[in-house]
Amino acid sequence: MPTLKAIAASTLSLPADNYIYSITASAPGSFAAISSDDSLRVFDAANIDHVSVVSHKTHDGGVTSLRSYPAGDSQLLATGGREGTVKLWDVRAGNAVLEMEMSRHSAVLSLACSPETNTIVAGSELVSSQAVVAFWDIRSPQAPRLQYVESHNDDITELQYHPSRSNILLSGSTDGLVNIYDTTVTDEDEALVQVINHGSIHHAGFLSDRTIFALSHDEDFAVHPATDPDEPGEGPEPVQFGDVREPLACEYVAQLCIGSQGPYMAAGNKIDQRLDLVPLVSSPAWQFDKDNTWRLPGAHGDEVVRAVYLDEQSQSVFTGGEDGYVRAWKPTEDGDAQSQAGSAKTSRKDKKQKDQGRFKPY
């Protein structure tokens, strides 16, 4: 089995007992991370100890979500907070250049950005029986230009724009639904072009222009065709994988990562202290290509990996975990990364480490 070796590890100068929530691209060669101390930090891909703090206190109520907002030469990042605001940060200036407020100050749980349409969209926590998908035009951010308030009846945990159609948005919720909207339509009922009933959504998104994935909080996974309202007739049936923990020999799924070679399921095992990147292939049918799994031995010790980013520019993988570290990984020619993984087993929480078990496929 091919392996990646840990070539660097950094706490990003976080205070002790904090951990990483999310990692996203910032500018070329740099990445941003949010963490449990509510800070927003940027680090260098070539030297992850080279860290700058954009904000020590990103949101008063706690930061929940992070997305890049690519806009020419500007280095912009969007964050959402539990106090009900969305902020757009200028990394170079080190300050928030815009702040937008949710109605009822409901907590922001998810974000998506569309620079092509100057739009930031946020999904809210359920408040007073209402969960909101709110759209802002950043050129006039005083109030949302559009809101969908009836399509979900629980927390909105995922938002993602279509990879090639800036008018199509996906939302996922703990109510079990994945919704697809045509955002050029203001009437909410007419804007909804597809509804998938899957189970409490942990992650969902587009695998391609015509394919959608859904992953529940209990690790149930499925691949669905995206319907085209202009093409009548039934499309192909969804592929239901069920609970992927046993077939992938994992305890949890961190996320699904998409690179130029296709999608990978990031599957973690705390007992065995490892993270596997398992390719998801579509030919001859949707399936996991377990024979070509990339293993990150040691991972983040016996702590959960919360964030995974595939950086094809540096040919690296960056992970963030509940041990409070960001780690950088690269392929190793001889396939033996165990000697490099020792640093991954040291915990800032000074916890007693569990015995490292041997991986046994089911």
Rank of each mutant, 00 (worst) to 15 (best):
S36I: 12
S36M: 03
D37H: 00
D37G: 06
D38Q: 00
D38S: 13
S39H: 08
S39W: 09
L40Q: 03
L40P: 00
L40W: 02
L40C: 10
R41T: 04
V42N: 07
F43Y: 11
D44V: 07
D44P: 05
D44S: 11
A45Y: 05
A46I: 01
A46G: 05
A46D: 14
N47I: 07
N47G: 00
N47V: 02
D49Q: 14
D49R: 12
H50Y: 09
H50M: 05
V51N: 09
S52C: 05
V54A: 01
S55A: 15
S55N: 09
H56M: 04
H56E: 14
K57I: 09
K57G: 09
T58G: 08
T58D: 03
H59R: 01
G61R: 05
G61L: 10
G61S: 09
G62V: 01
T64P: 02
T64Y: 10
S65M: 12
R67V: 15
S68A: 14
S68T: 15
P70D: 09
P70K: 14
A71Y: 13
A71Q: 13
G72Q: 02
G72E: 07
G72L: 02
S74Q: 14
Q75F: 08
Q75N: 14
L76E: 03
L76G: 12
L77W: 08
L77P: 12
L77Y: 02
A78K: 05
A78E: 11
A78M: 04
G81A: 00
G81Y: 03
G81N: 07
R82V: 12
R82Q: 14
G84P: 10
T85I: 09
T85M: 10
T85L: 01
L88Y: 00
W89N: 00
W89L: 10
D90C: 08
V91E: 12
V91K: 05
V91L: 12
R92S: 03
R92T: 06
A93I: 01
A93C: 06
G94T: 04
N95C: 11
N95Y: 11
N95K: 15
N95E: 15
A96Y: 04
V97S: 11
V97W: 09
L98A: 07
E99T: 13
M100K: 08
M100I: 01
M102D: 00
M102E: 13
S103N: 13
S103L: 13
S103K: 14
H105V: 00
S106H: 02
S106V: 03
A107G: 05
V108T: 10
V108Q: 10
S110M: 04
L111M: 07
C113S: 15
C113K: 07
P115W: 02
P115F: 04
T117N: 14
T117F: 01
T117M: 06
T117S: 13
